[in-house]
Design a protein around this nucleic acid. Structure first.
Lengths: 249, 249
DNA sequence: ACCTGAACACCGTTCAAGT
DNA sequence: ACCTGAACACCGTTCAAGT
């Protein structure tokens, strides 16, 4: 059979199969030939749908990012108009100075979710989406590139922070540091990184790791607890910073 | 030539060449054949020094971790005895409960660097070591495994926190969340993840990213600023938590 | 337009052969 | 002990050929 009457493949089917393969066997297990076999076609068939393996990987990554909830960055009022659009070009995001925007605790006339509450909810959804597919996080962590869902995410976070009164330079940094923390927490399990073999932890070399072989068994709770503790610390710390900003702008 | 009188290779030379290749061309550029060519030997020669490519990669990773400064976790007194060794087996690190250890602001009889100050210095050194070799961070983030330098690092951090009065369960979580943040920040530049091409940021799709094409140009300062802001927030937040712990233990 | 097999320049690793 | 070339089962990608 050369060309079937109905196509054997679609971008969606390929992306779904690729993600399953990555989840189950790791990033290295994703080869075009292996993926094609999984889809019951020959290797080169994939190139009718994606120009390169990288382009395929981009599509997989963006499908994962698409699962992140961004609804908390819209106005809280259900029937209200869409979020206020900031005037473009007013300041550069990379600037270290607070800039001309004056910090306010609430934007008048809008029913925005408070920024710290929005970051809480978003960070949890962000982490859940990524932690469901840890093997692809290294690719994802390279940044949004030209992937629409990743750009939409960056736009929503930055926009919400600026509208909440954060100077643009600081809003950029908060977007960055939140990505650091979330990708870091989803990249690999902390607990599972310690071998369950008790003989690894020689008391002469590692006097405080006598119980570390038990970590892997508590994988879920250790990582969940660390994420929650870290997120609370981060947001508490940012609230202190915001308070200083409001006091002396 | 079959066996030379003086060996052509050593583990050290191989590790150094591999790290250079990874730094300059990425993790995918490291192939055993390519590396061998770089070292002017034939491909299989490497197998006289490392059993597998993974074992070689482990050695590269541990050499990077070895650059992290851990001196702040020892006693501050230059001539003093070594850090107090905690009694082993007193509590499990995975436990969610504070446990029996009672939090104190200072351990009597020792001149330890205060935990928050030590974490500041360590986090900066940790990040500097990793950010110098971002391409290998995904491998490193998988956890210490059986790598001596990585285990020493985990031991030093956990030990210092416990000796500073943090309950063991919380000390575990702080070790984890610090790794999340540092590996996340070293994994990839936030700023460089946004294409410098202004046409990517269609105002209709991404109303707040009008200046995002400038980010890549401020790569260093944006990422440095985000790391410092995040670290300060984290440590401020943890200090709040510690204060609550001391108030009502 | 969409699939195929053949082909190219690559991989990691094994192994017998050399000194 | 330490290096070599040959060999095996893999890669990503191109391309002419089929319908």
């Amino acid at each position: 059979m050369a060309r079937p009457r109905t196509p054997l493949l679609s971008r969606e089917r390929i992306v779904a199969a690729a993600l399953r393969l990555i989840d189950e066997e790791g990033l290295d297990a994703l080869s075009t030939r292996r993926l094609a076999t999984e889809l019951s076609v020959s290797g080169p068939s994939l190139y009718n749908h994606f120009a390169t393996k990288d382009e395929l990987l981009d599509a997989v990554v963006d499908s994962v990012i698409g699962e992140v909830d961004l609804s908390m960055f819209r106005t809280a009022e259900p029937g209200a108009a869409d979020a206020v659009t900031a005037e473009p070009g007013s300041a550069e995001p990379g600037s270290a100075e607070p800039g001309s925007a004056e910090p306010v605790t609430e934007v008048p006339g809008s029913a925005q979710t408070p920024w710290s509450e929005a970051l809480w909810d978003w960070a949890r959804s962000y982490r859940a989406a990524l932690a469901a597919h840890p093997n692809i996080v290294p690719v994802l962590a390279q940044g949004p590139g030209r992937r629409p869902n990743a750009l939409r995410l960056a736009d929503a976070v930055f926009g919400h922070l600026v509208e909440s009164g954060w100077p643009r330079g600081q809003a950029t940094r908060i977007g960055a540091l939140m990505r650091y923390f979330v990708t870091g927490s989803a990249l690999a399990s902390f607990a599972a990184g310690f071998p369950a073999d008790a003989e690894v932890y020689d008391a002469a070399d590692y006097p405080h790791l006598g119980e570390a072989h038990r970590l892997a068994g508590h994988r879920g709770t250790v990582d969940e607890g660390a994420f929650e503790t870290g997120l609370e610390a981060l947001l508490d710390g940012l609230a202190l910073r915001f308070a200083r900003l409001v006091e002396r702008p």
